[in-house]
């Protein structure tokens, strides 16, 4: 499958509801979307190199969102990352932003907040 001219947003979340809901919304924003259920699936994917922005769940079985961020950094992949999390804990949000994330959205988040974050990530 070939990459289109549209920026590619990859969603990595173990929660099926999120994986099904987010792609439709992000496509409405005008981006291409790929969804992955785990960090390992994403790392093994051919879409890794084409990803322009990563919407990444913080807490997942296996490799967590921050761990994937570290792995990407270790590999030299400079993909803008928007963290999403169901734990509404501000104390966790700050370190993520400090680590270079574009944003950290608390579930449930608004479509506007997501679109804003994507715009910032792909600016």
């Amino acid at each position: 499958m070939m990459k289109t001219q549209k920026p590619l947003v990859s969603v990595v979340d173990d929660d099926e509801s999120v994986r099904e809901a987010l792609p439709d919304l992000i496509r409405i924003f005008g981006f291409d979307v790929r969804a992955f259920s785990s960090a390992d699936e994403f790392l093994a994917s051919e879409w890794l190199k084409d990803t322009d922005c990563l919407v990444l769940d913080v807490a997942m079985p296996g490799m967590s969102g921050p761990e994937l961020q570290e792995e990407l950094a270790r590999r030299g992949e400079k993909i803008p990352i928007i963290f999403i999390t169901a734990h509404k804990d501000e104390s966790e949000r700050i370190p993520l932003l400090q680590s270079g994330a574009v944003d950290c959205l608390f579930k449930p988040f608004s479509d506007v907040a997501l679109q804003d974050a994507l715009d910032r990530a792909l600016r």
């Binding site: 929660d15 509801s17 999120v18 809901a21 987010l22 919304l25 734990h87 608390f106 579930k107 479509d111």
Partner: peptide, 13 residues
């Protein structure tokens, strides 16, 4: 929050 996130996102979509 997980299902709520799904609901909100789906509703927005």
């Amino acid at each position: 929050n997980q299902p709520l996130a799904g609901i909100v996102t789906n509703a927005s979509t």
